[in-house]
Amino acid sequence: MQEHDTSWVRTEMALAQPAPASVRGMGAWVRTNLIGSVGDAILTIIGIALVVMILPQVINWAFINAQWTGPDRSVCATVAQGGIQADGWSGACWAFVNAKFGQFMFGTYPIEERWRPILVAVLFVALLVPMLIPRVPRKGLNAILLFLVLPIVSFVLLVGGMFGLPHVETSRWGGLLVTLSLSFVGIAVSLPLGVVLALGRRSKMPIVKMLCIIFIETVRGIPLITVLFFVSVMLPLFLPAGVTFDKYLRALIGVSLFAAAYMAEVIRGGLQAIPKGQYEGADSLGLGYWQKMGLIVLPQALKLVIPGIVNTFIGMFKDTSLVIIISMFDLLGIVKQNFSDANWATPQTARSGLIFAAFVFWLFCFGMSRYSMYTERRLDTGHKR
């Protein structure tokens, strides 16, 4: 037999080599993202020019010439170098934010009782952080504490009237307390309710399907401000005599139902994106309807629509500002309400207050967006048909 030459065959595994210098490091990132083409280079130059023109003025207004403390609006009319400028853009009036910070956070919640919402915030962070970290064990217990136990404890602490705690009416709540509480309850309620509505809309039972379609299309066809007006003004007219609901509870119901309708359509899109073979495979294993949905279909569907779910959460978080229509003051509402304070009524205070509110909203929304991107990358296992 003729012998074959095998000298060219590698007998040992090749050692891993670093990536070429041309595709790694800061220089490679700049070439790829900033000057990869003539158009990219032109846009990069324009962007740098805009930053050079705008950033020094922003730093000067927000930090160098800003007034950080003071008893009233008079401090905000004086530039750091002295004198008064007619255009009102001498510097930020953070003294206004500093003086009203307590109201921006808690509304008119009694000062001596503000330890209660602070304790609720601490408990919320203590339960939320382990829930967001994948490596922390006992997610089931964590979820029960966060979504079932914490709302009850929060209600007892915030409302009071039991266990020796003075009663605080929800009409005295305001600021970031209202924004976060409405958002948290809306998120906790709208996601499971949206799942149920999405499954109901795809149900083969005509009555269930029709009821879900009517609810979803009706709520999606009207603005949130109308929903809030209805639950605040019109709903009591349909209740029996002597039966009433707290205004804050009405806002919770309105925001939650409104978000659930949009959430249902997002999740329905995920359900329709799942290949038919996944349903057939679950049926071939003899799984029941709820087993099939809970173990096979829904986990895949929810993973596919994470951006849509988070987008709905972000929209709901910002839409809490509309509760001002029912005389409740969230963060933005309480900031605007303080513009009427004669001690602080200047253009500088208005601009500074609005920028502060915008920064707080951006901080929370950006955080949700970044975490959703992290979750997408962690769950990205591919999707093959």
Rank of each mutant, 00 (worst) to 15 (best):
residue 72 D to P: 01
residue 221 G to T: 03
residue 273 A to D: 12
residue 260 A to P: 01
residue 43 L to T: 11
residue 342 A to K: 14
residue 291 Q to S: 13
residue 265 E to F: 09
residue 124 F to C: 03
residue 253 I to R: 05
residue 175 G to I: 02
residue 219 V to H: 00
residue 324 I to V: 15
residue 227 V to E: 03
residue 161 G to L: 00
residue 266 V to R: 01
residue 374 Y to Q: 12
residue 376 E to D: 09
residue 79 V to M: 14
residue 256 S to R: 02
residue 98 N to I: 05
residue 288 G to S: 15
residue 62 A to G: 08
residue 17 Q to T: 11
residue 287 L to Q: 02
residue 172 R to E: 10
residue 238 F to M: 12
residue 258 F to T: 07
residue 194 G to A: 02
residue 152 I to C: 08
residue 267 I to D: 04
residue 270 G to K: 05
residue 69 T to D: 10
residue 333 G to F: 05
residue 195 V to C: 04
residue 184 F to A: 09
residue 89 W to K: 14
residue 65 N to D: 15
residue 25 G to S: 13
residue 105 M to Y: 06
residue 292 K to M: 13
residue 369 S to Y: 09
residue 15 L to M: 14
residue 214 I to L: 11
residue 315 G to M: 06
residue 52 V to R: 08
residue 204 K to G: 15
residue 290 W to I: 11
residue 87 D to W: 06
residue 114 R to A: 07
residue 167 H to G: 07
residue 3 E to F: 09
residue 33 N to A: 08
residue 161 G to I: 01
residue 95 A to G: 01
residue 160 G to E: 04
residue 374 Y to E: 10
residue 253 I to F: 11
residue 212 C to D: 00
residue 312 T to Q: 15
residue 20 P to Q: 09
residue 87 D to R: 07
residue 372 S to R: 03
residue 281 G to C: 05
residue 80 A to C: 07
residue 216 I to C: 01
residue 206 P to T: 03
residue 73 R to F: 08
residue 271 L to G: 03
residue 106 F to K: 02
residue 329 F to W: 08
residue 370 R to E: 09
residue 323 V to I: 14
residue 253 I to D: 01
residue 375 T to I: 14
residue 66 A to R: 05
residue 68 W to Q: 00
residue 203 S to K: 10
residue 7 S to I: 06
residue 352 S to L: 04
residue 148 L to R: 07
residue 122 V to K: 05
residue 54 I to H: 04
residue 13 M to Q: 15
residue 117 P to H: 02
residue 31 R to E: 08
residue 113 E to H: 10
residue 274 I to N: 02
residue 295 L to H: 10
residue 79 V to E: 12
residue 214 I to Y: 08
residue 84 I to M: 13
residue 173 W to S: 00
residue 47 G to C: 03
residue 178 V to Y: 00
residue 169 E to R: 09
residue 102 G to Y: 03
residue 384 K to I: 15
residue 43 L to Y: 12
residue 113 E to S: 10
residue 266 V to Q: 00
residue 345 A to V: 03
residue 91 G to L: 07
residue 197 L to E: 04
residue 354 L to F: 05
residue 350 A to Y: 14
residue 41 A to I: 07
residue 106 F to Y: 14
residue 130 P to R: 09
residue 345 A to M: 10
residue 242 G to C: 06
residue 199 L to K: 01
residue 36 G to Y: 02
residue 320 T to D: 02
residue 295 L to G: 05
residue 48 I to E: 08
residue 372 S to T: 01
residue 383 H to N: 15
residue 183 S to M: 02
residue 366 F to T: 12
residue 66 A to N: 07
residue 262 Y to H: 10
residue 163 F to E: 04
residue 109 Y to F: 12
residue 189 V to F: 12
residue 289 Y to T: 11
residue 43 L to V: 14
residue 107 G to L: 00
residue 300 Q to S: 11
residue 261 A to E: 02
residue 147 F to T: 08
residue 2 Q to E: 15
residue 121 A to K: 04
residue 252 L to I: 15
residue 163 F to W: 12
residue 134 P to W: 04
residue 96 F to Y: 14
residue 223 P to Q: 04
residue 259 A to H: 06
residue 174 G to R: 00
residue 97 V to M: 06
residue 87 D to C: 07
residue 97 V to P: 04
residue 227 V to P: 01
residue 261 A to C: 07
residue 38 V to E: 12
residue 149 V to S: 06
residue 238 F to Y: 14
residue 276 K to T: 10
residue 11 T to I: 12
residue 66 A to C: 08
residue 25 G to E: 09
residue 109 Y to S: 03
residue 168 V to T: 13
residue 96 F to N: 02
residue 132 L to Y: 01
